[in-house]
Amino acid sequence: MGDYMDENIDYLQEDVADFITLNSRDGKIVTLEEIETFINNEEKDPTDVTEILESIKSELDLKTIDDSEGNTFYYSGNEMTDKYAGIIIRVKNKDILKLIGDTVREESRRYPRPTYVTMFNLPPYNLTEGELEDMLAELSIDSEYRDLKFTHASNGTVFVYSNKHMSKGYADYLAEWIEVGQDENP
């Protein structure tokens, strides 16, 4: 009987590990409740979930991240970067304006490059076109983001950059290079 239970727990650990892994790979972070629901749906015997999580922690490089309401989310560091999980949380927290501002500043500083605005329509940002339009409009009037400026390439693609980290001429050049120059020089 004891052996049977141990085996069951092993399977459960494996299943939970897979559940978190696959969600992370798919760009999703999961709550404890979601993990419990998964276990229940799998019709597994009720078990101490935290114990299971502890047992798979190092194998998965299991990480947690909290949202502004104190909910904890789990993800596998093998599959998802902290940066990606951080963006998901900020989107959940509706911290979009600051998220865009920080992202643009970081890209202008580090790569350096201006950021194409439609990147924020893609996962994990997932803004709708309307939401993005509203955000960009807000950005351009909010004094907090006075350093963020717009430019566009000759194919019409719009970019935003921080003039704390790059001049207008530089942003213009890089936008054109990313959209047009690079393809013309394969």
Partner: peptide
Amino acid sequence: STPQPWAEFDSKGSRWTAQK
């Protein structure tokens, strides 16, 4: 070329175009 869970960096011009 797009933000992806596994990748710390991405770049629009990258020839690593594979994506969902």
